Simulated scan of single mutants.
Amino acid sequence: MSSPVRQAAQRYRRWKNLYYYSLGKAFLDPAYPAVARLFRNSTLPLLDLGCGMGLLTAYLRASGHGSHVIGIELDAEKVSVAREVLGEAGAEFHPGDAFSFPPHLGDVVMLDVIHYFDDAQQQALLTRIAQSLAPGGVAAIRFTLNERHWRFALTRAEEWFVHRSGWIPTTGHNFPTAEEMTRAFVAAGCEVTMEPMWGCTPFNSYLLVARRRD
């Protein structure tokens, strides 16, 4: 049987550029296997904020995750791709920013999105995510930690590049501190952990995992 990386990328085979991008992204991004381990056995619906072209959903499906997925993505073209390749895989995708998600009770994943919002918006969004966790539900949020570190400087430069290239339609540099990221989940009574999620990348990425108690 092929690996989750190849199974996920295969969905994008009709677009040569997206196929090779998917192979590289799914292979190199350490958050993908980490998120797959978190949600593989969950029966709760999963909300994916900033879902892009649905690659994470494709990877999760290839890793055994079968619950319903609701994806929200600002880029309408990526939403169209996600619908085309995953529309019959128990997933739905909608255009909109991270605040646009419908009422939800289940699990939540959000990778590399929080820095596009100002301080007040970040806290409002994290609070809403915490409120959207079902009993036993998990939120997995990858973010860039604001700290004096060479990885942080490189992350800021990478953010500028992806915006200038047109791959990401918006830009943002409001990277939060650890306390700012955990505040809403601690207030909601969740168990919170945070670990580096660098993998082989030079970026100052961390994965916050918040679990609502049963």
Rank of each mutant, 00 (worst) to 15 (best):
T57N: 09
A36L: 06
Y32E: 12
P30R: 12
L38A: 12
R40I: 12
L46Y: 00
A34S: 15
L49I: 14
A31I: 01
N41W: 13
F39T: 05
V35N: 05
A34G: 02
A62E: 07
P30I: 04
A62T: 09
V35A: 14
N41I: 04
L38Q: 13
S42G: 11
G50W: 09
F39P: 12
L60T: 07
V35R: 00
A58I: 01
V35I: 15
L55Y: 07
T57S: 14
D48R: 04
S42N: 06
A36F: 11
T43C: 06
F39H: 11
G52S: 01
L56N: 11
F39R: 08
R37N: 14
T57K: 03
Y32H: 12
L44S: 10
G54T: 08
M53S: 09
T57Y: 04
L56S: 07
L46T: 04
Y59R: 07
A58E: 00
R61Q: 10
Y32P: 07
A62C: 10
G54N: 00
C51P: 01
L38W: 03
T43Q: 15
M53T: 06
N41G: 13
Y32C: 03
R40Q: 15
M53E: 10
T57I: 05
A58F: 06
L49Y: 03
F39G: 02
M53G: 10
Y59V: 06
L49W: 00
Y59E: 03
V35C: 13
L38D: 03
P33Y: 01
A62I: 13
R40K: 14
P30D: 09
M53K: 06
S42R: 14
T43E: 14
L46S: 10
G52A: 06
L47H: 02
C51F: 04
G52F: 08
D48W: 09
P30L: 11
Y59T: 04
P30G: 15
L55A: 05
S63A: 12
T57Q: 02
L44C: 02
S63E: 04
A58Q: 01
G54V: 00
L49T: 14
Y32K: 00
S63L: 09
P45G: 11
P45D: 07
L60S: 00
S42Q: 06
G54M: 01
R40S: 13
F39W: 04
A31V: 05
Y59M: 08
A58L: 08
R40Y: 09
T57P: 05
A36Y: 04
L44H: 14
L46M: 05
C51Y: 01
M53P: 05
R37D: 15
Y59K: 09
L46Q: 06
A58N: 10
C51W: 06
T43P: 11
G52V: 00
L49A: 07
G54E: 05
L44I: 00
L44A: 10
L55E: 09
G50P: 12
D48T: 06
P33N: 13
L49R: 02
R61D: 05
Y32R: 04
L56E: 04
